[in-house]
Amino acid sequence: MAGKARPASDVPAWLVGMPLSYWVVGIVLLFMPVLANDFVLFQILGWSFILGMIALSLMFLGGYGGMVSLAQMSIAALAGYMVAILGTSGVQAISLHWPWWLYVPVAIIVAAIFATMIGALAVRTEGIYTIMITLAIAAAFFYFTRQNYTIFNGYSGFANVVPPELFGINWRRPIPFYYLALFCAAISYLVVVYVSRSPFGLALQGVRDNPRRMAALGFNVVMHRVVAYTFASVIAAVAGILLVWQNAQISPGTAGLPAVIDILVIAIVGGLARPIGPFIGALIYVLLRTFSPDVLLTLGLPGDRFKLMIGLGFLAVVYWSPDGVLGLWDRWRTHRRKAADPLTGQGGAP
């Protein structure tokens, strides 16, 4: 087959075709350490990237696969636990002191196996039952880690879990950690965008829209769904490892039911339609969670009612825009385009 070769060019097509907004966001994120202080880098943005990645793994399953899994936080936490158990922590009796290049991949693999088992259980159910099964697994994981002392060190969990001093850098310092989290988040985002148009991703969307037809095209629908759980778990596992390094500790509360539900809230508030949604949702969540106590105190209300703010925010988004902030944004853009005169193309955008 003699396909016509594209004219040779120094710059790849995808780079030329990238919208301006991507460039702006990319450059701002890269130079953020110049603009922001350590608190914003570490606590606000670092944490947003991590929660965004866990919510991204839910977005991949929910948005492309039509499967809402509440177990993604538990999968992330299992990877975090593996880092504490296999690597180094304050609990000398349990931790095995493996080197980082061994415990990081093993942690991801263990989390992926766990997720595959969850998937195998959950994919034969639909809609509300998938949510129920994964919620039950998340609850079981929480209680198991709290009651098991031989492996998970029960109620107190593990403290002093720090990242390795690779290249002589302390990766828990705000600027290195910011770049580490940014790197992982950006890679996860790009991988999900890329995979969504791969045979696996396209077929997953086909399974979401029409499982019966997919089977009639030769696809093993059940297996495809299970593999989607495995794939999504890798992103959640990487985020879980970052999370334990950021907090320097992990305990059952990391994947307690409130945390499990927060991931759902983040994904829904951001929007399940595109991979950027979870990161927007995570940033909103972290900002609300960090600053709402101050706002509440200013208003003369007790500061520990920040959950009320998050709840109200969630309610508002779900009420006015069931497809999240992304949906709000899309509607605003369509509206602006429609406002333009169809003949002259003018008068819409200011």
């Binding site: 890329y194 995979v195 791969s198 045979p199 696996f200 396209l202 077929a203 696809f219």
Partner: peptide, 19 residues
């Protein structure tokens, strides 16, 4: 494309197809 992919190998491929 999905129909063609369904009856050939690489159903789980993560590599985007080229033209």
């Amino acid at each position: 494309y999905l129909a063609c992919r369904g009856v050939s190998r690489g159903r789980y491929s993560l590599i985007r197809p080229r033209r």
